[in-house]
Each structure stands twice: as structure tokens, then as C-alpha cells.
Write a protein that binds this DNA or RNA. Structure first.
Length: 422
RNA sequence: GUGAGUGUAGCUCAAUUGGUUAGAGCAUCGGACUGUGGAUCCGAAGGUUGGGGGUUCAAUUCCCCUCACUCACCCCA
């Protein structure tokens, strides 16, 4: 229909991706540092896996029936004919790395964390991006419910340290391979009876994954789901015991939580404990962090029978609700006038940087007034003025920008003045 | 994949029922002030009104298509 020439498109970031500009990156660095410091304190170590993996790692790990695998993966064939997928989540990569490097034969605790980008072909909206960043935490080889509680406590502590308020911790147990099938069967039977009252999506879920009917937000589905049997009455002795102990450990840690029988995580691999921390103020995508136990993944991957638990936290979501501002560093602006001063200024910059004083010198050739104005706008703590006169006299002007006081000093005394007022 | 909303300067927003040359604040640059920042005043620069088509004497305004962004469904961090 349209024979018009296509509009010139300005070069732009891909849909669902965004630049984190210098003005915003400070808060990212602060959150990353806070998370890393805390995790290391609990005995976790960083494990960095590649951004892409063989596609079948996620098919097997994340689950072939999940939405993530069936419709959200960035999958392509490389020049060697391999099917490659940009990781949509981190857990399968960690499991793979542990098996590949036989890390379970080392004495070190199998506790890992990682912060980095994940990729999902979702339609972007508030709190949802195609490239987004997760903080990922995993523990292997611990089946005691105490670790379930500790990992929740660690997540809770991180959020508290960052000043997050209005966050609520939800917990549940989804059973295991011994007890969940019976529950799923009964759930299917119940759902089947009221099939006509459910939305088309949920009608489909009856066959594929009936637990996820609990996730539905359609009013009629919620009404029906409320009458469905609860997982809690189907848990086997082991799972029930695990969940009870998990809850009492949470009490011991002093973590407030809410048992949410309808909490069903969207990944297939979860067993026993699942948890989520939600926050108001995030919009529809209200999960700040989510995770749970996945005791079968390692042996399903052909590795040792190691139980595991972990969680992932959404960086963009977390940062969107943070109110803290990282403090700006104090730095020295070196203003120069003329060629000789420029050389001298470069020498000063090198000297001060080596002494641990952040220093900025610009070479645009501005007037002194202009350089002062720049220094002020950029938030410099001090300005060092280097001109012909200063060089001749061997005395330099150092201005404290906060007070406006200006001292004349020899080169060797400048550092002391700066350090004294820092 | 489905639905709704919004697109005007770098940013935040104006522009009468469709009506002259599309304005303002902030930011940028310059000047008042030859080597001293913040405040004030003056000035400059910055726009194919997202793009294309249509209706009209006339379109930022109305209609259609398209693109982008935002929000929601879905899914999840």
C-alpha cells in the first residue's frame, strides 16, 4: 500500500535493551559491591560462566514445557552448526560447571554467586527487559532446611542493607517427585470438573502444568483455584517435615514471612521449598527475587546426586525501588593557562593520581573563568591553578571550592593541604 | 503473541473550534566580567512537530498506514 520511502532510522539500542549511563551506573556499582561483599561474608564465591551455552542445557535444565524455553530464548546456529542459546537464567550453567570441573570433589563449599546479564525474548514492559541483569545465588550439596532459611535470610539482609522497604517474603513447598504426582493428578481432576469456568489459558494448563493455574489472575480462575486442594495436604512425610523445619528456622532467624500455598514458580525444576520476595511499587512485575530448591537437577544432568537451592534477584527491579544515592568522590580539577602550564599541569595530574587524589585536567583550551565554571559544575572539591605566574614564582594557587578559600603554596606542600581538607 | 495509551528542541512541557515565522523553563555555548566558579542580566545555537500518505485554501491539531516508546495481559527477575 505504502510506496513511500522508509523513514531514516536513527541508530538506536535494540528493543528491550538499554544503556546504563554514567549518571546511573554509580548505583549499580554500589548494589553490586554490597551484594558481593555480603555473599563473600556468608562463604559464597563468584562463579562466572559464559553468556551462551548449548541450547539443550536449558531445554533439559530449565524445562522443555516452560515458557522460557518454548518461546523466550535467543537461540541461533553458529558457524559450526551448533545450536547456541543466550542464557535466559543462570542455574543450569552453574550446575553444568560444577559437573564439568568436578567441583564437588574439592573441599570448598559449593556456594556460588554471580551478577550478570540474562536474555529473554519477552515483550518489554515495566520491570521486564530482553537483556536484564540478575544477581544469582546457588548452594549445592546441602539438603538441610537450615540452608533454605539461611539463604532467605541472606537475601533479606541484602535488601535491608540497601534500604528496601515494603518487601514481603512468601514461602511454600511444591513437594517432590514422590508426592507431587498424586497432587497433580487430583488437581487435574478438580480442574477438569470446572473446566468450563476457567479461562482458555488455564484450560490448557490442566494438561501441561496444573499447578500454574494458581498463578492466573483471571477472577473466575482465582475463585475456582481457591477451592482446589492445597499442596500442603499432599506433601509426603519428608517434604512436610522439611517445610516445617524450614519455617521454624526462618523464625529462628527472625525473618517475617507468609506461607503462600498458591506460590508456584514458573520453572519446572523446583522441589520442596520455593520462595519469593515481592515489593509494592514494582508494578505488575512485582517479584524482586525468586528461588527455591531443585534437588533433582544434578543427577538429571548425569552428575552426582547433589541437592541444591538458589535464587535470582532482578537488578533493574531492585534498583528501580532504591532511594539511596551513591556519594560523589572528591576530586581535584587542574586549570591551566598556556602551553608551559599545560605541561606542568600534566605533571601535577600524574603526581596527584599516584598519590591517590582523583584528578581531572581538560585540554580544550578554555579560559580560566571557564575552567573554574567547569570545575564547579562537575563538583570538584579543589581547583589547582597553573599559569605563567605560578610557574615563574614556583607558587601555585589552590582553591577549596566549598569554602572559596584560596592558598598559595609550593608544589611540595599542595598534597598536604589537599589531604588535610579531604 | 494480544490489547490500550503516548510521540513537539538534549531534558520537562506549551501552542485557542485546524489559522501568520511552533514557544517557554532547565541544560549547552558566548557576552556583561582580558587570570578566578556558584547569583543576576543580555544574547546565540538548537525543530522536516517520529516517518509516510490522505482530507483541507490551510494540519502539531482531523483520518489511514507505519515505526518507536510506555503500560497491561501472558510470563517472570
Amino acid at each position: 500500500m505504502s510506496t513511500s520511502t522508509p523513514a531514516k532510522k536513527e541508530i538506536a539500542a535494540i528493543k528491550g535493551t538499554k544503556d546504563i549511563l554514567p549518571g546511573e551506573v554509580g548505583i549499580w556499582q554500589k548494589v553490586e559491591a554490597e551484594a558481593k561483599g555480603l555473599f563473600e561474608f556468608y562463604g559464597y564465591r563468584e562463579l562466572r560462566a559464559p553468556v551462551f551455552e548449548a541450547t539443550d542445557l536449558f531445554e533439559k535444565g530449565t524445562g522443555e514445557t516452560t515458557d522460557i524455553v518454548t518461546k523466550e530464548m535467543y537461540t541461533f546456529t553458529d558457524k559450526g552448526g551448533r545450536s547456541i542459546t543466550l542464557r535466559p537464567e543462570y542455574t543450569p550453567s552453574v550446575a553444568r560447571a560444577i559437573i564439568e570441573h568436578r567441583l564437588y570433589l574439592q573441599p570448598d563449599p559449593l556456594r556460588f554467586y554471580f551478577i550478570g546479564p540474562m536474555f529473554r525474548y519477552d515483550k518489554p514492559q515495566k520491570g521486564r527487559y530482553r537483556q536484564f541483569h540478575q544477581v544469582d545465588v546457588e548452594v549445592f550439596g546441602e539438603k538441610d532446611p537450615a540452608i533454605d532459611a539461611e539463604i532467605v535470610e541472606m537475601a533479606d539482609t541484602l535488601l535491608k542493607n540497601l534500604g528496601v522497604q515494603n518487601a514481603e517474603t512468601l514461602v511454600n513447598s511444591v513437594g517432590c517427585r514422590a508426592c507431587r504426582p498424586a497432587y497433580s493428578k487430583d488437581l487435574r481432576a478438580h480442574a477438569e470438573k470446572v473446566r468450563d469456568l476457567l479461562c482458555p489459558d488455564c484450560q490448557r494448563k490442566i494438561a501441561t502444568n496444573p499447578l500454574r493455574i494458581f498463578d492466573c489472575k483471571v477472577e473466575s480462575c482465582r475463585e475456582q483455584a481457591a477451592r482446589f486442594p492445597k499442596i500442603s495436604s499432599y506433601l509426603c512425610r519428608e517434604c512436610r517435615d522439611h517445610f516445617t523445619k524450614f519455617c521454624s528456622y526462618l523464625d529462628l532467624f527472625g525473618i517475617p514471612y507468609k506461607v503462600e500455598p498458591n506460590l508456584v514458580r514458573g520453572l519446572d525444576y523446583y522441589t520442596k521449598t520455593t520462595f519469593e520476595i515481592v515489593s509494592s511499587g514494582l508494578g505488575a512485575q512485582n517479584a524482586l527475587l525468586g528461588g527455591g530448591r531443585y534437588d533433582d537437577m544434578m543427577k538429571d544432568f548425569g552428575g552426582p546426586d547433589l541437592s541444591a537451592i538458589g535464587f535470582a534477584l532482578g537488578m533493574e527491579r531492585l534498583i528501580s525501588i532504591l532511594k539511596i544515592k551513591p556519594e560523589k568522590s572528591k576530586f581535584l580539577y587542574i586549570a591551566t593557562l598556556g602551553e608551559a602550564a599545560k605541561t606542568k599541569g600534566i605533571e601535577f595530574a600524574r603526581f596527584f593520581r599516584r598519590q591517590g587524589v582523583e584528578s581531572l585536567i581538560e585540554f580544550v583550551g578554555r579560559s580560566l573563568k571557564n575552567q573554574m565554571s567547569r570545575a564547579n559544575k562537575l563538583g570538584a572539591a579543589w581547583v589547582l591553578i597553573v599559569g605563567e605566574e605560578e610557574i615563574r614564582k614556583g607558587l601555585y594557587q589552590l582553591k577549596d571550592m566549598a569554602t572559596g578559600n584560596q592558598n598559595e603554596a609550593k608544589a611540595e606542600d599542595l598534597l598536604k593541604i589537599i589531604c588535610d581538607s579531604a
